[in-house]
Each structure stands twice: as structure tokens, then as C-alpha cells.
Amino acid sequence: MAGRSEFRHARLLRPAGFDELGVRRALSDRILPALVAAMSFLAALALAGGLAAAGLAGHWRTGAATVVTVQVPRPTQPAEGSGGAGEDTRLGRALAVLHTSPGVVSTRVVPEGELSDLLRPWLGAGIEKLSLPIPAVIELRMAPAGADLDRLTRRLESAAPGALVESHGPWFRRLAVLAHSLVACAAVAALVVALVASMVVVIATRAGLLARREAIEIVHDLGASDGYIAGRFSRRVLGLAALGGLAGAVLAMPVLLGLATLAAPFAAPGQAGGDPELSWGALGVLPASLWLMLPGLPVLAAAIGFLTAQGTVRQWLRRLP
């Protein structure tokens, strides 16, 4: 109620479209929105890149980083000391050791078909015909605290000699560092874009002030406060910057959708350790956090525009008594 009456009061104070300072002509509705749209577009790309890198960093750090693979050569042969053919194969022995090792959360024997798929790019189709001695591969998920891999290696060696333990931890750590660096770069890029947008507003506002200098002096002499004059300029800039911010965000959408579609296979749903950040929603392939950030761009552009214009005009007005 109070809000409505204030609104009506404000309408009574100044008729809509009353532009005593001529700011509509001083700050054209073409150049500033176009420049802000370009900034908003770049910011959208930087944010999307940063979010994707952050998602991958989290994924690598928490999920895949705990993966260890164990290769068991000649998996179907009977285990040493088992006394001949039977259920007790080298693979069975290795699994038995793994199941009793502390720090191992789960084990998964990679099926032969999946192994063939993995090798196909190098050995071609029909690997079976080559009758190569392909080892069994066991994927382990380790507790985040990790496990004593040396001890595990020794135990496996005695259970199934020749078994290889390979931890992917160091690689994932390096990838996570890379991803974090990309996040930092995206943040710096977004910050630089915001600074440039702010400078664009300063330049546009100063040009507007110079163009309307006489009108400003007249209005100032009639008793307008700094806040009154700054308000006229900053409200105009707010509208133009919001418009530009919206245009940039909308223009960025098809590009982001295209990139996300290209990236989707690398972060498919259901992947072990998949990050919720990367599980694409039904609405599209963009992550939910980006859907929240894109509408924020026009709001942010408007806020930067408003505050920058306020500061610029108020500083300029200090030359008047």
C-alpha cells in the first residue's frame, strides 16, 4: 500500500518522460547498450567456462581421483599353490585380497567387451581373433583418505604374481590444478570485463555531461542537488546497461548451448563419481548454476552502470559550487 502510494507520489512529482537535462539525447540508446551487450556476452562466456572448469575440477578431485586400477595377467589360470584347476583362479585370489584390504570401498572387474572397446582404437576390431593375452582389469574405488598402495601391491604380488597396481591420483591432481587455474582465469576475465564495462560507462557519462553542461548548470542554479542530477543520469544509464546486459546474455545462449552440447559426452550422467554440477537438467544441456547466473548478468550490468554513473556525475559536479 505504502509502496503504491509512494509510486503515485513519484509519478505526481515528475511526469513520465520529463527530461529536463536532455539525458535521452546525451546518452543515446545505441552505443552504450551495444558495448554493454558485448561485455555481457564475454562475461557469459567467461562464467560458463569458469563453471565448467569448476565442475570438472570438483569431479576429478572428489570422484575419479580415488580410482586405482589393478591389472591381473593370465586371470583365468589357477592361482599358485591352489593345486590345479578349480574355482580358485588368479583373478579370484586378487579379488579376495582386495576385498579384505582396508581403504578399498568397491571393486569392479571390467568386462571383456568393455576392454575390447577400449583397445579397439589401437588394435582394431576382432581382437579376439588375435588371441592376445589380455589381462583382467579391476577398477577400485578407494576411500578419500586413501590407502597404503605399497602394502596392497605386496599383498597382490604374493596372491597373483605379476599383478600391476596403478593409481591415477597424481594425474587427476594435475588435471584438478589445471582446472582450478582455468577457474581463476575465468574469474579474472569476468573481473576485467566488469572493469571495462565500468570504464565504458564512465566515458559515456562524461561525454553526456559535456554535451548537457549548460542544462546541468541551469538546473544546478535552480537548486537541484547533486543527487537529483546524478539520479537523472544514473537512471538512464541503468536502463541502457540492463538492456545491453540482457541482449548480451541472450546472444550468448546459442553459443553456450552449442558448447555444452559438444561437452556433454565428456560428462555424461551416470558416470562414476559424476558431479551434480555436471548432470545436465531436462531443460537443456546447460548446468543449473548457469541458468541462475545468466539472468544475473543484466542485473549486474545495471548495477555497475548505475553506481558508476552516480560516482562519475557526482565527481564532475564538484566543480560547481
Binding site: L12, L13, R14, A215, I218, V219, D221, L222, G223, A224
Partner: peptide, 30 residues
């Protein structure tokens, strides 16, 4: 103040020029 060179705002009508001090002072439009 009445200035020698009038100092009117060229893009406003006579009515809006005269109304300006009251609008700056925040008087109701009526």
C-alpha cells in the same frame, strides 16, 4: 533569478521551463 541571457532550457516548452523549479523542489504535479 532572472538572468540577462534568460538561461532557458531550449528543449523544454515554456510551461516546463517555468515548472522546473517546482519539480526540482519536489512539489506535486497538481
Amino acid at each position: 533569478v532572472v538572468h540577462q541571457d534568460f538561461r532557458l532550457l531550449r528543449h523544454l516548452s515554456a510551461y516546463d521551463n517555468v515548472a522546473l523549479p517546482l519539480r526540482i523542489a519536489g512539489r506535486p504535479e497538481g
